[in-house]
Computed example of a mutant assay.
Amino acid sequence: MDGFGFTLSQGSAQHLLQMSEEGRKNILNELFGKGENQIGVSYLRLSVAASDLNETPFSYDDLADSLAVDPEVLQFDLGPDRLDVLPILKEILTINPEIKLMASPWSPPAWMKDNKDTRGGSLLPEFEEAYARYLVKYIQEMEKEGVQIDALTIQNEPLHPGNNPSLLMLPDQQARFIGVHLGPAFREAEIKTKLVVYDHNADRPDYPITVLNDSIANPFIDGSAFHLYGGTIDALSKVHQAHPDKNLYFTEQWIGAPGNLAGDLSWHIKNLIIGAIRNWAKTVLEWNLTSNPSLTPHTDRGGCDRCLGAITLDGDSVVRNPAYYIIGHASKFVEPNSVRIDSNLEEGLPMSPF
């Protein structure tokens, strides 16, 4: 196991920064510490630039001129992340310096896309090399900030171009992008960050299998990531059976406000904390770390306006929501590098012993 945790969105970081220094210290220690009254979160997912839980979409290389391009990515700047995500991340790293981080892009810069928009569209083939350069710079610039990215998924929900931001990326393009551009660029830059494909629902195991079947892309790929807004969790095992040398990660599941502890806890424990792990997942991550009472920020034209964080923050007031308890059931007791042992299944008793 690599760990259990949440996504630290820019919105989550903003909520935490609105707390008093003492209040923020207390809740971060509760979440990421390993003491008696702490839950020991061991894994976080970050968005590469904006996710849909931002007030507005942005990339690290936005250009004022709508006709301009920057193929050498000379204007790359972590910019907005320095205001929220990075300060919070550095506080978390002082509590748990061993926490693992996965990053996922929601969209390339709009000038790289065929629709020139943050929402939907596809990456233009002529900018695949530039996008690889962009992702290399992200890893390098985060490292300069003292933040080591353990794994990078190629695209959040590549078959869902209706979000804002988002990108449609079909499996043949993802395979080509990794094999021809991103993998070689990481190798040349001596980047050790793992490359993880798919990062979408369990109803399409054919997508990661197609990418992994590509002989040029395959050597660069560590594994595949999944959500469970469609399909069934045993689809992860289909990917494992096709490529048993590759890892599997469960990276996102949301809970809609206001939440229902009894129903949410039982479904998520059965399908994710037990189900994903019985089907070879090395992580279980919920979406996302914090919300506020108004469930903001989120982008327009597709941003999630009902996503309930693991905790709801209103100043220094903290409400612990279902995802806090779902992840806490595992993160408090199952440390990174724990191993799931083989076991039989009794009817009506799901279990995943470590």
Score class of each variant (00 low, 15 high):
residue 105 P to T: 12
residue 164 N to W: 14
residue 278 R to S: 05
residue 40 G to N: 15
residue 347 E to P: 15
residue 198 Y to Q: 01
residue 77 D to L: 10
residue 267 W to N: 10
residue 144 K to G: 08
residue 283 T to S: 04
residue 179 G to L: 06
residue 219 P to E: 02
residue 59 S to H: 02
residue 294 S to K: 14
residue 159 L to W: 02
residue 224 S to E: 01
residue 149 I to K: 09
residue 93 L to W: 07
residue 106 W to L: 08
residue 266 S to Q: 11
residue 60 Y to H: 10
residue 50 A to D: 01
residue 111 W to D: 04
residue 266 S to V: 15
residue 53 L to W: 07
residue 206 D to H: 05
residue 263 G to W: 00
residue 173 Q to T: 09
residue 122 S to W: 06
residue 52 D to H: 11
residue 153 T to L: 01
residue 52 D to F: 12
residue 154 I to M: 06
residue 311 I to M: 02
residue 97 P to R: 13
residue 337 N to M: 10
residue 323 A to Q: 12
residue 165 P to H: 11
residue 14 Q to R: 11
residue 337 N to S: 12
residue 160 H to C: 13
residue 350 P to N: 09
residue 55 E to G: 04
residue 231 G to N: 00
residue 62 D to I: 08
residue 139 I to T: 15
residue 288 N to G: 14
residue 57 P to I: 12
residue 73 V to F: 06
residue 272 L to W: 00
residue 338 S to R: 06
residue 153 T to M: 07
residue 312 T to M: 11
residue 348 G to R: 13
residue 267 W to Y: 14
residue 218 N to R: 15
residue 131 Y to A: 04
residue 254 W to C: 00
residue 138 Y to M: 14
residue 114 D to Y: 03
residue 296 T to V: 01
residue 200 H to Y: 13
residue 320 R to P: 04
residue 114 D to H: 13
residue 130 A to S: 15
residue 96 N to W: 03
residue 254 W to D: 03
residue 328 G to A: 09
residue 88 I to C: 09
residue 59 S to A: 13
residue 317 S to N: 07
residue 314 D to K: 14
residue 269 I to M: 11
residue 205 P to H: 07
residue 215 S to E: 13
residue 6 F to I: 09
residue 37 N to T: 14
residue 329 H to F: 14
residue 199 D to E: 10
residue 222 D to E: 08
residue 75 Q to F: 06
residue 187 R to A: 15
residue 291 S to A: 03
residue 170 L to N: 10
residue 178 I to A: 08
residue 215 S to Q: 12
residue 216 I to N: 13
residue 174 Q to M: 15
residue 200 H to N: 13
residue 221 I to L: 04
residue 130 A to G: 10
residue 175 A to E: 07
residue 237 S to T: 12
residue 282 K to T: 02
residue 303 G to M: 02
residue 323 A to G: 07
residue 354 F to N: 02
residue 334 V to D: 00
residue 293 P to H: 00
residue 256 G to I: 08
residue 40 G to D: 11
residue 152 L to H: 01
residue 29 N to L: 12
residue 1 M to L: 13
residue 67 L to E: 15
residue 161 P to N: 02
residue 157 E to K: 07
residue 24 R to P: 08
residue 21 E to F: 04
residue 300 D to K: 05
residue 88 I to A: 02
residue 131 Y to W: 15
residue 53 L to G: 00
residue 140 Q to C: 10
residue 195 L to G: 09
residue 194 K to F: 00
residue 67 L to S: 14
residue 322 P to C: 06
residue 295 L to W: 07
residue 197 V to R: 03
residue 350 P to V: 08
residue 154 I to T: 14
residue 46 L to C: 04
residue 135 L to W: 01
residue 82 R to I: 08
residue 47 S to N: 14
residue 344 N to C: 11
residue 354 F to W: 08
residue 139 I to K: 09
residue 266 S to K: 15
residue 83 L to P: 06
residue 66 S to F: 14
residue 90 K to S: 08
residue 286 E to P: 00
residue 43 Y to W: 01
residue 258 P to W: 08
residue 120 G to Y: 00
residue 145 E to F: 10
residue 98 E to R: 01
residue 264 D to M: 00
residue 80 P to T: 08
residue 199 D to L: 02
residue 42 S to P: 01
residue 200 H to V: 03
residue 79 G to H: 10
residue 92 I to K: 04
residue 346 E to C: 07
residue 108 P to N: 07
residue 341 I to Y: 10
residue 315 G to Q: 09
residue 61 D to H: 03
residue 203 D to W: 12
residue 127 F to Q: 05
residue 140 Q to K: 15
